[in-house]
């Protein structure tokens, strides 16, 4: 387990991402705070539109919408990334913090070989020659478990299977030994067996390289596999966070309970229908006042008219009025 007193690798405080629009400012991510220890895997879970991808893009400084407004603080190894110059940010990206994406097909430039693209990143952050960078690409592809890396290095993204493409993508992300890897739904576009292989690969990376991983997903099954800690997001806010065993054993927010109920049980009687959370997440423009989950919540009551802050519950933090009322879901 990572040492909790050590300086966190990444500390995000009061991050807000809003967009200027005709209907005023729309808040996509609200007052988000979290910390990530070295070597830790943090799973960020939520439905689409919950702000989980935006959070990761904000950490990378990749939100380039001219109407986006970012406030708060993102500290990486004690250094403030918010408001860093483009040039300084470029040195962090790819070298210190790397990112992999959901669809490795569209995330790679179609007209270059995977080896070329890996070598490009290597050369952007080191003084290696073309030949050395290529050798490094072959070595990385081999480490990612790609068969015949000398051959595969000269193939184009469209010539590879989805799993192999994602391996190439991970090889590229890891080419400069980043301390932090942000994986934005890296297994969503893959079939289940390949998913398991990629998850195993990411776990190995943590073991061998000691990298921290922020793993974004909407799949609680994947979270159960890989995470050390879990952060559940809903409508741009953290609703519950804590160590994975605690959250899975004793989910305290009704939304987390709903998410966990939606995993089919492995043992026992097969349920006729999986329970689902009624309704749909609110759109960014029409978030309810008070608790954002209120309209979909079975425990909705008067207190929920005020947006709950995060209450501590054991090692978890939960944004629900049931916690101080002593009736956690």
């Amino acid at each position: 387990m990572p040492d909790p007193v050590a300086e966190p690798l990444l500390r995000v405080e009061n991050l807000c991402v809003s967009f200027r629009s005709e209907r005023g400012m729309l808040r996509a991510v609200e007052n988000l705070s979290f910390a990530l220890q070295p070597g830790e895997i943090l799973s960020v879970v939520g439905e689409s539109g919950s702000g989980k991808s935006l959070t990761s893009l904000a950490v990378m400084g990749l939100i380039d919408d001219p109407n986006a407004v970012l406030t708060g603080s993102i500290r990486y190894k004690g250094r403030e990334l918010m408001g860093l110059s483009r040039r300084a940010l470029r040195e962090v990206r790819g070298a210190e913090i790397a990112m992999i994406f959901q669809d490795p097909m569209s995330a790679m430039t179609p007209v270059y070989t995977i080896g070329w693209q890996i070598a490009e990143q290597v050369r952007a952050h080191s003084g290696l020659t073309k030949r050395q960078a290529r050798a490094r690409a072959v070595e990385l592809l081999g480490e990612m478990g790609m068969p015949n890396p000398e051959l595969q290095v000269d193939r184009f993204p469209h010539q590879l299977s989805g799993g192999m493409r994602q391996r190439a993508m991970i090889a590229m992300a890891l080419s400069c030994n980043p301390s932090l890897l942000i994986a934005d739904e890296p297994t969503t576009a893959l079939d289940v067996t390949v998913q398991a292989q990629i998850l195993r690969l990411l776990e190995q990376l943590r073991r061998h390289h000691g990298s921290s991983i922020v793993f974004i997903t909407h799949d609680m099954g994947v979270v159960a596999e890989i995470a050390d800690r879990v952060m559940v997001m809903y409508a741009g806010k953290v609703v519950e966070r804590g160590p994975k065993p605690d959250v899975f054993a004793r989910p305290a927010h009704p939304y987390t309970v709903g998410l966990l109920d939606s995993i089919p049980p492995m043992a026992g009687e097969k349920p006729h229908r999986l329970p689902a959370i009624p309704g749909a997440p609110p759109s960014i423009a029409s978030r309810p006042t008070g608790c954002p989950f209120g309209p979909r919540c079975a425990h909705h009551h008067d207190a929920c008219r005020i947006d709950p802050p995060l209450f501590a519950l054991g090692r978890q933090d939960v944004s629900c009025h049931l916690v101080p009322e002593g009736a956690a879901a």
Partner: peptide
């Protein structure tokens, strides 16, 4: 607007490249 441009940025490449 393509994903691979976002990847290129995430790789830390310069804007010219």
């Amino acid at each position: 607007g393509e994903d691979f441009i976002r990847t290129a940025r995430a790789k830390g490449l310069g804007e010219g490249r």
